[in-house]
Design a protein around this nucleic acid. Structure first.
Lengths: 195, 195
DNA sequence: TTTTTCATGTAATTCGTTACATGATTAG
DNA sequence: CTAATCATGTAACGAATTACATGAAAAA
């Protein structure tokens, strides 16, 4: 049910197409709640049935028509109600397969896992740059923000500090893993007795 | 597909029942990959069809029979292969509805969201105690651990530092939210002009 | 010329949640 | 006496992924 409200949230300020939404779900709210375009189109269908959004077709030259969705008053109401609804509390359920793989760390996969960590480290670094850019552009002076934007700012702060922590963890992991491969790879022919 | 391998991972060292697994999935690996008992029973069925696990019934007096599952050699092989498999890289996809709700912060829900943060803060605190206890008991001297346990230790480290960061974030959020309600609630009857 | 971007969708499958169902034992 | 624990499962539904499908324009 939550994706539905995430979409409505994205529609509060702008009228957007499914394509736009799928795109913006790779930024902003999508950092915290990702969805594929298939999910979004399906949900948009349901939302118009509920009359929580309206559809409007916009023709374009040489491009497929866009279907623009806007939040209705009843949609806005439903969203406001939902916010006050009891949710399942989730702590740290990142569901990253890497955790399971870590539980299976062995000589035969340690190098593979090292590259996974490097990969994630790099990806997170890029995301952090993005976060910081957004922060500087839109949230430079948080005290002057209207209340709603303060909420968004808080989410962003969470993303930033979470990202930094994740980076630090990757570094810890990489150094622990590489110290575990030493003696195997760095091969100083002397003292090979500490197997 | 990942739950399957999470279950097999849990079966590496012990022979466990579905009930045991559902329980242990609230600890250890379950911190990173939670699953309900229904998912586990379903998956265990598939795993025995694949002959990746064997089932063995154990009678008990006055209690339902337990069905104990053990990893087979081919299961072990499949698991080792899977670890080397390319996975979808997920960064920070926590899917906590609270993020969406934060994007909808307003006068009418700010108090509600404050209590959500308090709730999560408390829950995370408890989990951190648990993590730290596990750490002291089983991972006091990480350097002496066998390689596989080092992987588990790394996951634990990630949990701990992630948890601490989360706590700090909750505190930030709470102070920002309470400063946003000030002037509303602390009600010094003078200067009510800054609406 | 090939790939990416724009823009929408259907279909099939698997994953995850919620509710229902049973039935004895033990702890409060 | 009531609630929780032990132990297994089925059924139904909703959420999410993957693959398939189209078709033109712009960028590589």
């Amino acid at each position: 049910m939550a994706l539905r409200y995430a979409i409505m949230t994205a529609l509060i300020e702008d009228e957007l197409s499914g394509y736009d939404l799928a795109g913006s779900f790779d930024k902003s709210l999508g950092f915290f709640w990702h969805a594929s375009h298939q999910q979004i189109y399906r949900e948009l269908g349901k939302l118009s049935e509920l009359a929580w959004v309206t559809r409007r077709t916009e023709s374009q030259k040489g491009r497929p028509d866009r279907i623009l969705y806007a939040l209705t008053d009843s949609g806005r109401e439903a969203l406001d109600e939902w916010v006050l609804t009891k949710d399942r509390m989730r702590l740290q359920e990142t569901k990253d397969e890497l955790y399971i793989k870590l539980y299976n760390l062995s000589e035969s996969n340690i190098e593979y896992l090292q590259t996974r960590f490097l990969e994630r480290r790099e990806a997170m670094m890029k995301r952090l740059y993005l976060y910081e850019r957004i922060r500087r552009r839109h949230y430079a002076d948080p005290k002057t923000l209207p209340l709603r934007r303060k909420g968004v700012y808080l989410a962003l702060l969470g993303g930033i500090s979470g990202g930094k922590q994740y980076l630090a963890w990757c570094d810890d992991a990489l150094s622990l893993l590489s110290s575990a491969t030493e003696g195997e790879n760095t091969a100083s022919p002397a003292k090979s007795d500490t197997a």
